[in-house]
């Protein structure tokens, strides 16, 4: 069954004098990165299949400013944040869904001090809520019995304490979940945070994503579930560097749901 997706913008809802149930904050990666675009599409498919009215900001969305802030560039962060808050408050946005833990964290924890307070939810939490409410049913069993592992992103896990929601979503897939040695509070970073994504590494023995991928290979898992576009890139690159891309697949939680349901 394929889902016919049409994505509306906030401006269209406004023109119809309506408001969507939720705003999907796509983020830079979800908008422009070829890998992360697939995640955006998966989320759009799930929302559409469940008849959830959602909107995106489209051209009115701008980088949250997270990488600028963590790089130390507070001016740029403030410009981005205040501009986004103007837009969000202008539309009277209440609830925001993000597919990126960095957007999630900044919108949820850093915008309130600047005058932007919203109910922000990461898609792994949203998927869990939908499953618990019986709205989202995971069918098929494409991953039934498959050895699958989960990589905690720092900004969903350690920073915001969300460890269980993504694991519950994975349980719904009936797969054989194996935990990595460093998981939950001790989860090892993929290497992209703190604006490392945009620069070369400092000299060292190896790249952080290599360290993480070695652990994934040792776990024997054939599928790695992630919840962050930057983790997807880092883990994907690391797996390629180890020449394991034929054996180990990296997917976002939403992609696993879409594949299971054949959407």
């Amino acid at each position: 069954m394929s889902v016919d997706v049409r994505i509306k913008k906030m401006s269209e809802f406004l023109a119809e004098e309506k408001a969507p149930e939720i705003l999907f904050w796509v983020g830079c990666a979800g908008s422009y990165d070829a890998r992360a675009q697939k995640v955006s599409k998966s989320i759009a498919k799930i929302l559409t299949a469940l008849d959830i009215e959602f909107a995106i900001l489209g051209e009115e969305e701008s980088c949250t400013g997270d990488p600028a802030r963590r790089a130390g560039n507070e001016f740029l962060f403030q410009m981005q944040a205040l501009q986004n808050i103007e837009v969000l408050n202008g539309y009277g946005v209440k609830k925001i869904l993000t597919a990126c833990p960095h957007c999630f964290n900044t919108l949820k924890n850093e915008y309130p001090a600047l005058g932007g307070t919203y109910d922000v939810i990461h898609h792994s939490q949203y998927l869990q809520e939908l499953i618990d409410a019986g709205r989202l049913k995971v069918e098929g069993g494409a991953f039934k019995g498959k050895k699958l592992t989960y990589h905690d992103s720092c900004y969903l896990g350690r920073v915001n304490g969300v460890y269980e929601a993504p694991r519950k979503v994975l349980e719904a897939l009936d797969s054989d979940l194996v935990e990595l040695k460093r998981c939950k509070t001790k989860g090892l970073c993929c290497g992209a945070g703190g604006a490392q994504m945009y620069k070369e590494d400092e000299p060292g023995d190896k790249r952080i994503n290599t360290e993480r991928v070695e652990e994934i290979v040792a776990s024997g898992a054939k599928v790695v579930a992630a919840n962050c576009p930057f983790c997807l890139t880092m883990l994907g690159d690391g797996i390629k560097a180890e020449e394991k891309q034929e054996e180990i697949m990296v997917y976002d939680l939403s992609e696993l749901i879409v594949q299971s349901n054949n959407w």
Partner: peptide, 25 residues
């Protein structure tokens, strides 16, 4: 980091891309 800073400042995204932000849709 300079290209990232410049790109955010000029086009509001961490990468400078020719496409519209919602082209993926």
């Amino acid at each position: 980091w300079l290209p990232m800073f410049n790109s955010i400042e000029q086009v509001g995204a961490v990468w400078q891309m020719p496409d519209a932000r919602d082209a993926w849709t």
